[in-house]
């Protein structure tokens, strides 16, 4: 896939980092402000897609990237499942039990397990959408050769 012009590349360099930081902010503050794992994950994937579209990439690099994103996706969904199981094993014998201390309302570290769920679901959503996009791009590249 060919990249775009120099102006687009420079602008993307400036913007992509901020988009990534905004995604992380939305994920971490998911239990205090609008947002959460699903919204932040999609924004994270959007920053990667922006970079790939602007800079372009060769076929081998994209394959490597896809292997990594598939791995992250599976690990994240497994971690969500383990966190849900931890309520069954450690807490009060209820699946999806929020057994950690709640803290005070409105603090960044509060709400027990909810921030952890947010973070791992965010990683899962970001990796999933990135994998779909990479699969489509690789398919088009393969067909061109």
């Amino acid at each position: 896939m060919k990249g775009m012009t120099t102006i687009v590349k420079k602008t993307t360099q400036l913007i992509a980092g901020m988009v990534f930081m905004y995604g992380i902010y939305v994920i971490i503050h998911g239990h205090l402000t609008p947002g959460g794992g699903f919204a932040g994950g999609v924004i994270l994937a959007g920053s990667f897609i922006l970079l790939i579209l602007a800079f372009g990439s060769d076929f081998v690099k994209l394959m490597k990237e896809e292997t990594g994103s598939t791995l992250y996706e599976n690990l994240a969904i497994l971690t969500v499942l383990l966190l849900a199981l931890s309520g069954l094993l450690l807490g009060t014998r209820i699946f999806f039990m929020n057994w950690m201390p709640k803290g005070t309302l409105g603090q960044l570290i509060s709400a027990g397990m909810l921030p952890l769920y947010n973070i791992f679901v965010g990683i899962e959503v970001a990796a999933s959408i990135l994998t779909i996009f990479l699969a489509l791009v690789i398919f088009k590249e393969e067909m061109k050769e």
Partner: peptide, 9 residues
């Protein structure tokens, strides 16, 4: 989004 992408595939 995921199902639309699958349809597109």
């Amino acid at each position: 989004l995921a199902t639309t992408a699958m349809l597109m595939a």
